[in-house]
Nucleic acid binder design. Structure first.
Length: 571
RNA sequence: CGGGACGUGGCGCAGCCUGGUUAGCGCGCCUGACUGGGGGUCAGGAGGUCGCAGGUUCGAAUCCUGUCGUCCCGACCA
């Protein structure tokens, strides 16, 4: 491709609305343009990178035995009603109401495709002999994000590779899951992306096992907890801690329990300031409804409760923060003054709560807190649980070594779904004995845009982007320094033609621009290899070749330019 | 959905507080000449209903009200 024939609107200055590096640099490099919040046009350069990521994904999906198909973005709302996901997606689901003659058609734009693919399979698969099978597509998804942000990292419309496995048994599910897991590792590897598979909460999509693939990046929205010595890595939502249940014993030499007046002080922060005691001394008492029944969850004041852990600890299928009325019923007080002493419901406590000596808690009475509260004496539990989010330095569950935190961009996610959708949509098969059973499913997503964005986010310097060869918009840029110099122009042209003949992915910067402009644009866009043809070099019979990551160019005789470029690209 | 900020040629900004000719600057763009190894020089030029709608005023980019949009923090989420 010639620069003059494509469309690369680079920008010298930073756009005011772009803060994160991927957004800023992809805009400046002329790869993307924003249409509105959460919707971007991929310009020729950006789209080339996307297409390269897609190609790698396709190759690895085929290798893993998945078959590509293409489903509509439009779907009947009825399908989402049948699985209950109209409610669980809520406002995120983009709905359309269309008139067709005198009828009204209710549609949704697919935020994902479990319903559509399961419905398809339900209609056409009926025997164990047709299974297992894994189907995938690369398609635009639509989600009405409450807050699109970070440029292209979080948008309302995005490209996703989504695969779905269908099997007759747990063994088939596990095999499909493992095949996808391995394919994902190869995909991210080939894309030149640093990634980390982490244990993940499977979330509202359902299911019981899942891993997320994270690209470590400062601006990542997810927090990952990991341990270098054991290799354990998990999303913060999911991360276990290796803490042990505390010995339940009243500490020696404690103070008397006393009631103190704390008018209008309902938060730990407020009471902490009022009493001049640090939040670690507080017992945070959260009232939840577990399957509709109130429970009090005790967490140390400076920690965060983890609802997934609480739900599992009490064996509930649903868990939500209690409403004001339920809180009043068990505490006898308005919101903000709950405590374990004398509370009228089941109490469970995090390990660390049992270790607090002379704690501060709500008094289960308006505008009052208790100080000098001690376990065993003033309130009791049989044992303690891991109920809170991990914090930096918590012991790893495997090795016991302190764990570290890092931010990450979620680029892929694999789930074992089970039969949630096959049950809801009647996707069943007859086994060898003629018994009808639900198909066991898995689903596997990759954010295609996010592969490109995560690379932009993490591979750059002060001059611009630095693409890995696999995802770069072009592998090589050929830069004639003076288009008015016929010898330079012709030499560049010859190299360009020769590179094209060897099927290289090459861009010729045939603009009549000053050398400085061309150098800066090449650095900004971040082509992996740059070939510079100048009058001086040409007089010596050489051109300069430089990788984006090299400091200095090397002089290469005209005759061996193409061979040298091939060598650099394959390295 | 809570909190904060900002909307002025394509991009980045000034002007607004304290209303008053023709709304400025840098970059980019067009024409010509020179120039040609890291965003060059000179000369000429095009391009703006100051987000939108009301209001106050003799007069509004500037003051007031409303509204729309965008970004950031939080909640939510691939």
């Amino acid at each position: 491709m010639r620069w003059s024939q494509t469309f690369i609107p680079t920008m010298k200055e930073n756009p005011a609305d772009a803060e994160v590096p991927s957004h800023r640099l992809m805009l400046r490099a002329g790869m993307i343009r924003q249409l509105m919040a959460g919707a971007y046009t991929y310009l020729p350069l950006g789209w080339k990178s996307i297409r390269k990521a897609e190609a790698i994904i396709r190759e690895e999906m085929e290798r893993a035995g998945a078959a590509e198909m293409h489903m509509p973005a439009l779907s009947p709302i009825e399908l989402w009603e049948r699985t209950g996901r109209v409610e669980s997606f809520g406002n995120v689901l983009i709905r359309l109401s269309l008139k067709r003659g005198d009828r009204k058609v209710e549609l949704a734009l697919g935020p994902t495709h479990e319903e559509i693919v399961t419905d398809l399979v339900a209609r056409h698969v009926s025997s164990h002999r047709q299974l297992p099978i894994t189907l995938y597509q690369i398609q635009t998804k639509f989600r009405n994000e409450e807050r699109p942000r970070f440029g292209v990292l979080r948008t309302s419309e995005f490209l996703m590779k989504d695969a779905y496995s269908f099997g007759t048994s747990l063994e088939q599910l596990n095999a499909a899951y493992q095949a996808m897991y391995d394919a994902y590792c190869r995909i991210f590897e080939r894309c030149g992306l640093k990634y980390l598979p982490v244990e993940a909460e499977s979330g509202p999509i359902g299911g019981d096992a899942s891993h997320e693939f994270m690209a470590p990046a400062d601006n990542g929205e997810d927090r990952i907890v990991y341990c270098e010595s054991s290799g354990y890595a998990a999303n913060l939502e999911r991360a276990e801690t290796g803490r042990k249940p505390a010995k339940i014993a009243t500490p020696k030499g404690t103070s008397e329990m006393k009631k103190v007046s704390t008018p209008n002080a309902t938060s730990i922060e407020q009471v902490s300031r009022l009493l001049d005691l640090s939040p670690e001394r507080f017992i945070k008492t959260l009232i939840y409804l577990a399957d509709g029944k109130p429970i009090a969850v005790l967490i140390r004041g400076d920690h965060e409760a983890n609802e997934g852990k609480v739900r599992r600890a009490v064996g509930a299928s649903s868990l939500e923060l209690a409403d004001e009325e339920s809180i009043r019923k068990v505490t006898g007080a308005p919101i903000g003054f709950a405590g374990p002493v004398g509370i009228k419901c089941h109490v469970i406590a995090d390990h660390d709560v049992a270790l607090i000596r002379d704690a501060v808690t709500g008094a289960n009475e308006g505008d009052a807190h208790l100080t000098g509260v001690n376990i065993g004496r003033d309130w009791k539990v049989e044992t303690t649980h891991d109920l809170r989010n991990a914090v930096e330095g918590d012991p790893d569950p495997k090795s016991g070594e302190p764990m570290k935190f890092v931010h990450g961009i979620e680029i892929g996610h694999v789930f074992k779904l089970g039969t949630k959708y096959s049950d809801a949509l009647g996707a069943t098969f007859l086994d060898e004995t003629g018994e009808r059973k639900p198909i066991i499913m898995g689903c596997y997503g990759i954010g295609v845009n996010r592969i490109v964005a995560a690379l932009a986010e993490t591979c750059h310097d002060e001059k611009g982007l630095k693409w890995p060869v696999a995802i770069a918009p072009y592998e090589v840029v050929v830069v004639p320094l003076n288009m008015k110099d016929a010898a330079v122009r012709e030499a560049a042209e010859a190299i360009y033609v020769e590179l094209k003949e060897t099927r290289s992915d090459v861009l010729l910067d045939d603009r009549d621009e000053r050398p400085g402009v061309k150098f800066n644009d090449a650095d900004l866009i971040g082509f992996p290899v740059r070939v510079v043809i100048g009058g001086k070099g040409l007089a010596e019979g050489v051109v300069e070749i430089k990788r984006r990551t090299d400091e200095q160019p090397e002089k290469v005789p005209l005759a061996s330019v193409v061979a040298r470029i091939r060598e650099l690209l394959n390295a």
